Computed example of a mutant assay.
Amino acid sequence: MMLSGSPIGVFDSGIGGLTVFRSIVAQLPGYDYIYLGDNGRAPYGNRSFNTIHQYTWECVQWMFKQGCPLVILACNTASAKALRTIQQQDLPQSIYADRRVLGVIRPTAEVIGSYTKSKNIGVLGTKGTVQSCSYLLEIEHFFPELAVYQQACPLWVPLIENGEYDKPGADYYVQLYLDKLMQQSVDIDTILLACTHYPLLQDKIKAHLPANINVVAQGDIVAASLAGYLHRHPEIKQNISENGSRIFYTTIDDTPEFDHHASQFFADEVKSSYVDVKEGC
């Protein structure tokens, strides 16, 4: 059954996008929202371009069927490997041509240059995000003077998804990938967490770095960008309902497990419902 109202949809391959959703709700609390985590098929980071596009488009269409006029891909991998195809091919050829889908990479690239003094930036992300080179291309567009170094961290998302991010064992893997990144340039003074899961490791990351290095998460950046987008596009804004509701869905049938971990990411109690996105409404 389609929900009443017209909420903003927030999508992620799992629970990491809740760090972005938390910031969006903090900055724009009046709107209705639904969150969908595709936990049943997570993680996306090591999957092929075609698979990520297929899964993401299925989830986006499901959110459209719930009445969402706007969907935010709060997932760097989906933003890197599926967003452009959805915007340029899928939407125009579908019954949802009037809907909008936005990602997290471009808003971050638009402002990341303001965080660095040395003009050397490190990007930590999933294998899929790093291999796409999306950040290299987008940052080059806005800040061609910056040197950007990337490092994939394939073991971080499994650590976080399994609730091990705050355990002593996580320190080894945090240090492992930070060392690989910093070996690329001693001049890096800003590190972008280009995966919405990674803010859960932010304290450990900072503890393994010199104090002068900025560690930048995306939540507040994406939230501010969304506020600006709605201001510039009143034709979208007027179609979004404003009752302050938040509804959570997951594609894994163990909803208590999802709720437990999701509540830590969202910094508030989460009660979710299971959904099979292939079945639609």
Rank of each mutant, 00 (worst) to 15 (best):
I221A: 09
F265L: 06
L159H: 05
I188Y: 03
R22K: 15
M2L: 08
Y31S: 05
Q66W: 05
L193Q: 11
E235C: 04
T250S: 15
P154I: 09
S245V: 04
G45V: 08
I86R: 05
Q54N: 13
T255G: 01
I105L: 12
V275R: 05
G113K: 06
Q61V: 15
D276F: 12
I24S: 01
Y165E: 12
S273P: 01
T19E: 03
N243C: 11
L176C: 02
G45E: 08
A267M: 13
H261C: 00
G5I: 02
L193Y: 06
G122A: 07
I252F: 13
C195K: 07
I105C: 04
A194F: 09
D12W: 03
P158S: 10
L226M: 12
T129Y: 10
E235F: 10
F143L: 00
D90R: 10
N39F: 01
G228S: 09
L192A: 13
V71C: 06
E235N: 14
Q183F: 06
W57P: 02
V148M: 11
P69N: 06
Y33I: 10
L209I: 07
W62R: 09
G125C: 09
I139P: 01
S13P: 07
R99M: 08
E110A: 15
N214R: 14
T126Q: 12
S6V: 02
S114W: 11
Y33E: 03
V174R: 09
G67D: 12
L137M: 09
P107Q: 08
V215E: 04
T190C: 12
F258P: 01
Q89H: 10
I95H: 11
N214G: 00
G219I: 05
D253A: 14
F142H: 10
I205Q: 08
